[in-house]
Amino acid sequence: MPVKWVLHWQPNAGTTVNSQILTEVSQCVEGINGVKEGRWKATLTFYRPMLREQANMAEFPRDFLGISLPEQPNKYYFVIRGQRLVLEADLTIQTIMERLQSYKARVALNFEGFQYQLGDFQLRVGKVVPNHAESLRGILMEVEYLPISSWDKSHQIMEEFFDIWQEALSKRSLPGHFVHIEPSFGEFGLSEQYTSQHTAIQYASIVAQMIATAQSAQSDVTRSLILPICLMEPSVTIQFASLIDGNLAC
């Protein structure tokens, strides 16, 4: 399948993401002759272990994610980033997880927006919002180059496109920029031939980065309040759940 870079918006220090930025990014895509095609949506769910004794939380993965992607509507992906594991399964794996009653789907993030065609590129720009809420938590962009499925061979053209895109966007003087994180797919046992498992890993990496950014931004303001509590219960999932709920407490 075609290679894809998944980018996320990194706000400048002291600024936050807002819907105006999303609007301008979308206008910029249209400004470079991107043809709007339709909507797209991906979903990422945080799973948390259901334990009989909470004291043993450290034995279980805290970064267990479930991801559904529009490019594979009949598949579901699990990623445990800390252990470099990615799994592709049928949608029914969600039902199996529910019946096992060992992990609970805690919070979910939706990635949704519009798809554009631009020559051999397919672009998707979307917002990151918590499930059952409208509050904007981030902006994400997929850049897919249709003729090539080799990650290595596509690198040069993807970088060139990324540079052009950054330049086009810079004219709007927005308070931030898009960032591309390149995970080590080999560590996950994947080859350089692109698959949807590569996409799932990119989404997981972006969310980890968003958590880190959100934590960093909060700690600048409330370091003295939050840090002691975080040290007592250093669960990333719980912290992020609080962050996307808009609370400050860990």
Binding site: P49, E59, F60, P61, F64, F78, I80, Q83, L85, V86, L87, E88, A89, D90, L91, T92, I93, T95, I96, R99, S102, Y103, G189, Q197
Partner: peptide, 21 residues
């Protein structure tokens, strides 16, 4: 009886070990 099946990629055993099975 109830029964649910899902196809999975090859590292499914490692994933369930990682989950605590």
């Amino acid at each position: 009886r109830t029964m649910v099946e899902s196809k999975a990629s090859k590292n499914v055993l490692r994933v369930f070990y990682a989950l605590g099975y």
